[in-house]
Structures are given as structure tokens and as C-alpha cells.
Design a protein around this nucleic acid. Structure first.
Lengths: 224, 224
DNA sequence: ATTTATTTGCGTATATGATACACAAATATA
DNA sequence: TATATTTGTGTATCATATACGCAAATAAAT
């Protein structure tokens, strides 16, 4: 066979905590773009599935455990890597808050979360990749309840609400939003409350995965 | 650099004529899967953009001119090619009826249109690729007016209607459908009529591209 | 202990958009 | 001239989305 080409995977991983949406970046240790921030990723091995490659690179570079992963887009422009032709298959990932904190130990490669509104300069064409990933996140959250993938096992309703207002960058009427979510029946109300700061204590909810997969199978559209 | 991998592009190209949706396939001349039908495609050259590779392969193998092209998905399973590891970036294309007929001359590789309801056995994992492409086509047509990409410059309204009923595999109420399309204002009614067979002659319409791009920019959702 | 600020939590009324449905107009064919 | 066939429109009803106000439960301040 002929025409072998360098192939990498890159993973745009989003996390959410206390009203901020963050993306996971790593500081490059080697040229090109040494000491600049980049989306985690690396070369695909000859005998390795694409998703395995993503998981391996993420685990090596950041130690973060991915909760949701899907393919984003394949970038193949000729000049995207100064070393030569490199085609990159980008993935889109979400993590829950418990796996959100980075182990201080993994400083072999420095990994850090960045608020998506305060991004540093990025290596390669990673700015473009990130832009497409953010669009996908915003788009997807309005028609599939993937918002839950970013929340913990138990959460107050206001967390979900704040996630949507942050991501969609607009106010949401809580009463109508709740009606919509309730109609989907993907939330189970737990027999437990939390109270943070002033105000009425909030009931905790959990995400009903069974129901979620049922909806997905039926192709239910979910429009916020 | 290291870990070079064989990279191909494949293009699932749809056409539409007289109520049938067809896909373009080529008969393989060489092993593996010699004499079996496959989605057109081939190896990406070292110094060639991905889209250029698609267009080149399509032109070499089928002579068809693509009207609309977008990336579909990248397939990278280890065993998808018996010759070894081959990662394939699949594309999704639509052609208009005027470029629909295949030149009889290009029989170097035999290319043929197949009704998507009467598909032959396919080489490699192309059945899987085609399945995903058909889902994409069906999904996409309900929220973006790409249906027009499959029609000629001028067409009677019933052609558009039949395209949707065929693709969605269900009846559509013409009056409500027309209301929806009219509200988008993407159709210009021409001062011209056609009459085929019995029945009232039909006005011809053309597709207002300017308006279409405007809608797209505004992120207008179009739900049939 | 009382008041104030803050957050959660619900219900109803209105507007907007989707669906259901029937008949007239214009032609080719018999 | 009658019949079959296709195009072409309007209105009434139903479902869903949006707009909107106030009570309940707490922490913090006085």
C-alpha cells in the first residue's frame, strides 16, 4: 500500500463547575510550539483504534477520565503542522465534576482547565478546532440532554439551569425550563436537600439514564 | 515523525430523479473485493487536501460533478480493510439531476446509480458507511433545506414534495408543507409553467440561494 | 427575636406554531 | 363532452412555547 500519512487524534474536553465551562489544555514540552497551550492529543498507533488512541493520550497527558466521547471532525489542511502533513481526527469529550480536578502529580505534561471565555493562545490550528467544538457543544445541548454529562451524580436544579444559561449565553425562564425538563422525565427527584448560602434549600436530582437512552432511541428532539 | 497510516477518502454521493433516491457506486477492478460494488474513493496523496482528494477520486472514477459536499465521519476500525490498517474519511455529497447521468465513456471503472432501497452487497465496511450517510441525509433534510441541492434549477413544487415523501418515507400534507416552505421564503415562483401528462400545469420554482445562506447564517431551524 | 435579602419552587393565561381537513381550477385522455 | 388527474389554496382546531407573579424556606443582619 501507499501514501501513508501521519495521523493524530486530538480531544477537546469540556468540564463545568460553579457556573464556568472549562476546556482541558496541555502545555507543550517540545517543538513545534514548545511551551504553548494545545488541545491534548497525539499520534495514532498502527494497531490502535481511534477512540483507544484518544483515551490513551488523555490519560497520559492529563489523567482525566472521560465521561462522554464522540467524534468531532477531521482536520486535514496541508499546512496545519509545520513539521509536514498531519491529519488529525478531533474528538469531543465531556467530564463530570468529580473527575474534574487535575492530579497535581501529573506534571510531566502540564495540564490545566481554562474557562472557555478566557482562552490562551493556542498551538497549531487548535483555535479553529476549539471553535468548532464549542459550536457543537452549544448546538448539541439544545437538542440532546447532554448537559447531564457535565453534572455530578446529584445536583440541584439550579445547577442545570446555570449550565444552560452559561452555555447558551442568555437568560432562561426557570419555570418554563423546568416544565420542559419535567416533560422529558429524565430527572429523578431525590429525598435529599442541600443548602448553600441564603435562600430556600434545594432538592437534589439525579439523572435517569434508562429514560435518557429510551428517548435517544426514539429520536426524541429536545429543544430548549 | 512516526506512525504513518494509510489514509483514504470515500464519498457517498446521492442523487434524485423521478421519485427515487440513488447513490453512486463503483465496481471494483482489483482485489480485495474485486468485482464487488463499493463507495467511490481512494488514497489521499501526501500533498493533497482532503476535499481535493474526494473530488479527484470522484472525477476519476465516475465523472460526476458534485454540487454539495460535506464531511461525514472518519472510520478507523482496525479490521476494516483486509490489506491492513486503513483509516477512511467519509464524505457526503449531493448532485443535481443534470449531472446525474453517467458518461458512458468512463467505463474504465464501472460506475452506476443504485436506488437506496435496492442496494447490492458492498465491499469493506461500506454498508455501515452508507447506513450512516442515509441517516445523515434523512436527518439533515428535516432541519436544513438541502433538498434543493438535489433538484434542478427549475422545478415544480410537486418535485420537492415527492423528494421529501420519498426521503422521509411518509406522506406529507401538501398544504402544510407549502406553508412551511413559503414561510422560509427560499422559493421564487417563476413566470413559467410545465405540463406533464394530465392535470393542471404546474408553476416552476427556483431556489433562492441568497435567502438560503441568510437563513443559514441566522441559524434558522427548519423542521418538516 | 425580628427583619431583610436571597434562593427555590410552582400555576395560569396568552400567543404562537403545527396539524387536520375539502374543494375548486386547469389540463390530457377517452 | 365527460372523466380522470394533477395543481393549488384557506380555515378551524389543537398542541406547544412563552410570559409572567407570588409564596415558601432558609442565612445573614439588626
Amino acid at each position: 500500500m501507499k501514501n501513508k500519512i501521519n495521523l493524530t487524534v486530538d480531544a477537546v474536553v469540556f468540564g463545568y463547575e460553579s457556573g464556568n465551562i472549562s476546556v482541558l489544555l496541555v502545555k507543550r514540552k517540545y517543538e513545534p510550539f514548545k511551551d504553548e497551550w494545545a488541545i491534548p492529543g497525539g499520534f495514532v498507533l498502527e494497531n490502535e483504534n481511534l477512540e483507544d488512541a484518544v483515551q490513551r493520550e488523555l490519560s497520559e497527558e492529563t489523567g482525566v477520565k472521560i465521561n462522554y466521547l464522540e467524534q468531532l471532525y477531521t482536520f486535514g489542511d496541508l499546512d496545519r503542522d509545520p513539521r509536514g502533513r498531519v491529519v488529525s481526527i478531533a474528538y469531543f469529550g465531556l467530564v463530570k465534576p468529580n473527575t474534574f480536578k487535575l492530579q497535581a502529580s501529573t506534571d510531566a505534561e502540564m495540564a490545566e482547565w481554562f474557562d472557555i471565555k478566557k482562552l490562551p493562545k493556542l498551538a497549531f490550528d487548535h483555535k479553529k478546532i476549539l471553535k468548532i467544538a464549542i459550536e457543537r457543544l452549544k448546538g448539541k445541548i439544545t437538542y440532546e440532554p447532554i448537559g447531564f454529562e457535565l453534572l455530578g451524580k446529584k445536583f440541584p436544579f439550579s445547577d442545570l439551569e446555570k449550565l444552560y444559561t452559561t452555555l447558551l449565553n442568555r437568560e432562561i425562564d426557570r419555570r418554563n425550563f423546568k416544565k420542559k425538563i419535567n416533560s422529558l422525565k429524565v430527572l429523578d427527584e431525590l429525598d435529599e436537600k442541600v443548602s448553600v448560602g441564603p435562600g430556600r434549600p434545594a432538592s437534589l436530582f439525579s439523572f435517569n439514564k434508562k429514560r435518557y437512552f429510551q428517548l435517544k432511541k426514539e429520536g426524541i428532539i429536545f429543544e430548549i
